[in-house]
Design a protein around this nucleic acid. Structure first.
Lengths: 242, 242
DNA sequence: ACCTGAACACCGTTCAAGT
DNA sequence: ACCTGAACACCGTTCAAGT
């Protein structure tokens, strides 16, 4: 009586309960995210979609964070890496901005995923491809290795954080309150206590998200090429193996 | 029989159930975060701490995100703003880095809060004070208004994202897997498919978090002073009021 | 008028027990 | 050996009903 009536194609026209695999689970998770949003991609909801119990998923996925990282890596397959080709038009800076903008556009569609990415970095094939592409462009620009290594993190972190920041903005009608409140707080700053804020006024809020994103990339690229070489230190030793 | 035995000073030696106020709620939330971590600062757990039901909190706090933003603003009171004084030693760049480093140190203690801050910006008194201090230093450095406005966001976003990234790292023993896995993936990259990654190898992982943070500030500051002036656009119109 | 008990609709994760 | 039902220990938010 629990679930096994023979003709139980209760969900969609899936012909029979397919065998569980890690890839199958991630595929279903991606589909679920596209149809219902990341907030619905929970172990329980996903198990339900796969006609099983949540416990079964833990055979293939360590926890929710790992699942989300796997979903993000899948999504990263949509990033347009073509600007990294040396044959693409434009100088390396322009092409780097195009590449990173594509990344942001892909992640923008699911800001909650970007938020997760700041914590649990993905490390799948598609993420490696993105890293490779950014490094190729920095190398083409003559950025030396250590600066490129650290600059890579700066660029991807900025892109990811920019996408993450858009969670909640414009989602539910009440969610805009946060930004509204910040706007109000900035515009009503007292010239006595907060002279700088008061002096800038609405200039603080100038520009669209796209303009700011592009400007940020310019700042980072010019800073990466201009800043002093990072110090030479051995590979980060997280624990001295006591 | 539910809870009201007259001598019910069951929790600590709190003499009587104090009247609820927004400030009192946030105070208790901060104390709870310090003793049990942000993940325990839930509406239900907080209500329990205040000897009431969760519904009562919604009279004073709109939702969990707003609560966390309020907690963050309280925490921001600990940031050392003294480097913003024109009388403090060091040139403006050094003092700006000191100020931002203080911010990162404060937020670092509660990375989950930093993660929340990327989404629901705080907008309390202490946040305004921090913004004012950063703007004062940029002004002292002769950074023109529009660049200062956008640069402010870049600097604070970078600092916040850097703190947020440390969630999960070194928390539980299993949580390091994410970073370990990324390390393994980078170091074992195939020279054929990922030549740039393979060429850099362990250089990608060089340096401590502190070194990278400081370098990132240098990059941003030099980029902000060097990048072209942002375009002039009217105040960001989020919705054309249809 | 103000406050809140109790409910609704969910979560992640584990482990003893089944096949 | 492999898989999973059922439980444990929680969530946010709402609203009808109490004082």
């Amino acid at each position: 009586m629990t679930a096994h009536s023979p003709s139980a194609r209760s969900r969609r026209e899936r012909p029979a309960k397919p065998a569980l695999t890690r890839d199958g689970i991630v595929d279903t998770a991606v589909a679920l995210m596209r149809s219902e949003g990341l907030e619905r991609v929970t172990m329980r909801r996903l198990a339900q979609e796969l006609d099983t119990g949540p416990a079964s998923l833990y055979v293939y996925v360590a926890n929710t964070a790992e699942l989300h990282a796997a979903v993000l890596d899948r999504l990263l397959g949509e990033v347009d890496l073509s600007p990294a080709d040396a044959t693409a038009p434009g100088d390396w800076r322009e092409r780097l901005v195009r590449l990173l903008t594509s990344y942001v556009e892909v992640v923008f569609a699911h800001p909650a995923l970007a938020r997760a990415a700041l914590v649990a970095r993905p490390f799948g094939e598609n993420y490696l491809g993105l890293v490779e592409a950014v490094l190729a462009l920095l190398a083409e620009g003559g950025v030396p290795p250590r600066r490129a290594s650290w600059g890579l993190d700066l660029l991807l972190q900025y892109a990811t954080a920019s996408a993450a920041e858009h969670s909640g903005r414009g989602q539910s009608p009440g969610a805009e309150d946060g930004w509204d409140a910040l706007t109000r707080a900035l515009l009503s700053a007292s010239p006595a206590r907060h002279p700088q804020i008061a002096a800038l006024g609405s200039a603080l809020l100038h520009g669209t998200g796209e303009e700011r994103l592009a400007w940020g990339f310019q700042v980072l690229i010019s800073g990466i090429t201009a800043a002093p070489e990072p110090p030479t230190t051995p590979c980060t030793p997280p624990a001295p193996a006591s």
